[in-house]
Design a protein around this nucleic acid. Structure first.
Length: 598
RNA sequence: GGACCUGUGGUGCAGCUUGGAGUGCACGCCGGCCUGUCAAGCCGGAGGUCGCGGGUUCAAAUCCCGUCAGGUCCGCCA
């Protein structure tokens, strides 16, 4: 993806006082300095030798590049580290370089001091060619020297800074919570840290500071925040690493709307920090509408082509494939590209996504009438055809895609196709945040008949749905809310249950016995007996936010030292086998490692 | 656990469908030339276990099987 039009590498370098070996940062050199002698430090970016009497050396630091002119042969290569003292001189007329911030000037009469030599780098640090990611990760320190990675990570730092400023402004207190936490078997697989002093027992690394921050509310900290590392031993994806960073916050005596305002302020601050001046106010959509219109609970609302309910039209249809509780239609965003074989591919794709099938209908104009061309066209009545075309607003050349199934399945399949076909329509420079609210409290039923939490077991049900908890639990909405940006889930939060009677009802519905609850969360439940304030909070992923704001489609591009999809660090070689003595110290023995794992 | 894509001098690619000598392009590297370039230019050169293993074949970068690594996705991620 192209990087967005944020500010250049660093916005505030003119305010940094140069120290030590230099008296200037390269990016600050301009025509204002004509005649001045400056000393800069950096890496040789490029050497252009025109014989021994004229050599151009591009010297680079994080702030910019400047051309140094030498009139004798130099023993310099790319990535040598140098210190250059030279006179800022206007370039001869006609040789200015407008693509360089310092392109009007150059350093002449220069003294070049070699601070360190460098082997030729394994890949070019200046070309725009995409280098294989495994090579980049093996030499990550060099990859990070490239302008794009400098820009990404500095953007991330500005985002962190803006978030902290927002939190402090809103009266939040930054508190740290333990990394060595206690197992609470629930949700994500935890990273295990065996105890040396207590053989057979283990800490785990926290999936999030969830319980700790609720305890801080009991303690009366009122508003807590932390830019917290979270760790989950689950399979990796483009938007998921083992360890990731969240803005984690919790506040007492607040409503859902209050929490949403706190978070809005933080993400707006973060957006401004990367140079976005115009971000629309954050809209809201209910979970039900999100599924109904976009087929996902994290809608990308930068483009239309929402799903259309056509169940009524086919209530008495002859088309067997359409007799289902719900029929959803999508007007394809790219009808002209949809050849017969592409359409067949879409049918396969829909099936892979779990649909029983996918119907496609091409709208054609015959004698001024719109008709349908499709393998199933002859089974569709004229009335159905007319109503369908009118309802979805199809024109000649349109392609209508339809899935018939249970409501949620039909929506999800078609919603995924909407994304895959329409993604191109989304403006990469547009940032559309949206709150998804009114999530169901339970996401379904497990095999043993107990309900499954949609968020976590401490989520407060919606006040209006309390009396349906036992009678119709699946229809109960919760006081939880997600923040979505351009189709990515940034984070989620909820108002928590602070009353033990309500918590007991929820545990009972979730099939968690008193004994089990005590075992897992005993310390939290005990804490709640001593005066727990009503409270709620939120957490959003800073890796994801940063990636989106700088125009990356992969969070590894905003993490200094990420892991590969199989969880290894190509630079350090981690994870590595441990010596037997290390296992012994922990009171552990391990099965022999098979050869191909070494 | 599963599906798909990729793997060819240091880097990025082409070659693979239809087997015929490690063939080609661009960058980089080394040497030479070159006084206004900035993707510098010109000339010359070095550099390869075609990821690894097995199979088919007279012959494999190419076809088949397996495997490893990287990526995308499904499962998983309260």
């Amino acid at each position: 993806m192209e990087s967005s039009s944020g500010p250049s590498v660093i916005t505030n370098y003119p305010t940094i006082e140069p120290r030590g070996l230099r008296d200037r940062y390269i990016g600050t050199i301009s025509e204002k300095d004509l005649g001045a002698s400056v000393t800069v430090c950096g890496w040789v970016s490029k050497v252009r030798e025109h014989g021994e009497h004229l050599v151009f050396i591009d010297v680079r630091d994080f702030s910019g590049i400047v051309q140094v002119v030498a009139h004798s042969s130099v023993e310099l290569r790319a990535e040598y580290v140098v210190r250059v003292k030279g006179k800022v001189t206007r370039r001869p007329e006609g040789t200015e370089n407008s693509s360089l911030d310092t392109g009007q000037v150059e350093l002449t009469d220069s003294e070049i001091e070699l601070l360190a030599q460098a082997d030729p780098p394994p890949f070019s640090l200046t070309d725009r060619v995409e280098v294989d990611e495994s090579t980049r990760l093996r030499f990550r320190y060099l990859d990070l020297r490239r302008e794009k990675m400098q820009s990404n990570l500095r953007a991330r730092a500005r985002i962190n800074s803006a978030i902290r400023a927002s939190m402090e402004r809103q009266g939040f207190t930054e508190l740290e919570t333990p990394l060595l936490w206690t197992p609470t078997p629930e949700g994500a697989r935890e990273f295990v840290v065996p105890s040396r002093l207590n053989h057979g027992s283990s800490y785990v690394l926290p999936q999030s500071p969830q319980i700790a921050k609720q305890l801080l509310m009991v303690s009366g900290f009122d508003r807590y925040y932390q830019i917290a590392r979270c760790l989950r031993d689950e399979d990796l994806r483009a938007d998921r690493q083992f360890e990731f960073t969240q803005l984690d916050l919790e506040a007492s005596f607040v409503s859902q709307d209050d929490v949403m305002e706190f978070i809005s302020d933080a993400v707006m601050g973060a957006s401004r920090a990367v140079g976005l001046e115009h971000v629309d106010p954050i809209g809201r959509i209910t979970w039900r509408d999100a599924i109904d219109l976009y087929g996902v609970d994290k809608p990308d609302m930068r483009f239309g082509h929402t799903l259309i309910d056509v169940t009524d039209i086919f209530a008495d249809t002859q088309v067997r494939a359409l007799s289902a509780p719900c029929v959803k239609a999508l007007v394809a965003p790219n009808p002209s590209e949809l050849t017969r074989s592409k359409l067949d591919g879409l049918v396969d794709r829909a099936k892979a996504l779990g649909a029983k099938g996918l119907l496609w209908l091409r709208v054609e104009s015959k004698d001024g009438e719109l008709t349908l061309d499709s393998p199933v066209a002859k089974f569709i009545s004229d009335a159905e055809s007319r109503e369908l075309i009118a309802k979805v607003g199809a024109k000649a050349g349109s392609v209508i895609l339809m899935v018939a199934d249970e409501w949620q399945s039909a929506c999800q399949v078609l919603g995924q196709l909407r994304l895959e076909l329409g993604r191109k329509l989304a403006d990469p420079n547009q940032f559309t945040y949206v709150w998804v609210v009114d999530f169901p409290l339970f996401e379904g039923m497990s095999e043993d008949g107990s309900l499954i939490s949609a968020h976590h077991p401490f989520t407060m049900p919606n006040q209006d749905d309390f009396d349906k908890l036992e009678s119709d639990p699946l229809s109960v909405r919760s006081q939880s809310y997600d923040l979505v940006l351009n189709g990515w889930e940034l984070g989620s939060g909820s108002i928590r249950i602070h009353r033990s009677d309500i918590q007991a009802r929820i545990f009972s519905l979730l099939g968690i016995s008193t004994e089990e609850a005590k075992n897992r969360f005993g310390f939290l439940l005990e804490a709640f007996r001593f005066g727990a304030p009503p409270h709620g909070g939120f957490a959003f992923g800073i890796d994801r936010l940063t990636a989106l704001l700088v125009g990356e489609d992969n969070i590894r591009e905003v993490i200094a030292f990420p892991k590969t999809q199989s969880g290894s660090d190509l630079m350090t070689g981690a994870p590595k086998p441990l010596e037997k003595s290390s296992w012994d110290l922990l009171g552990l023995s391990v099965k022999p490692v098979s050869k191909n794992q070494i």
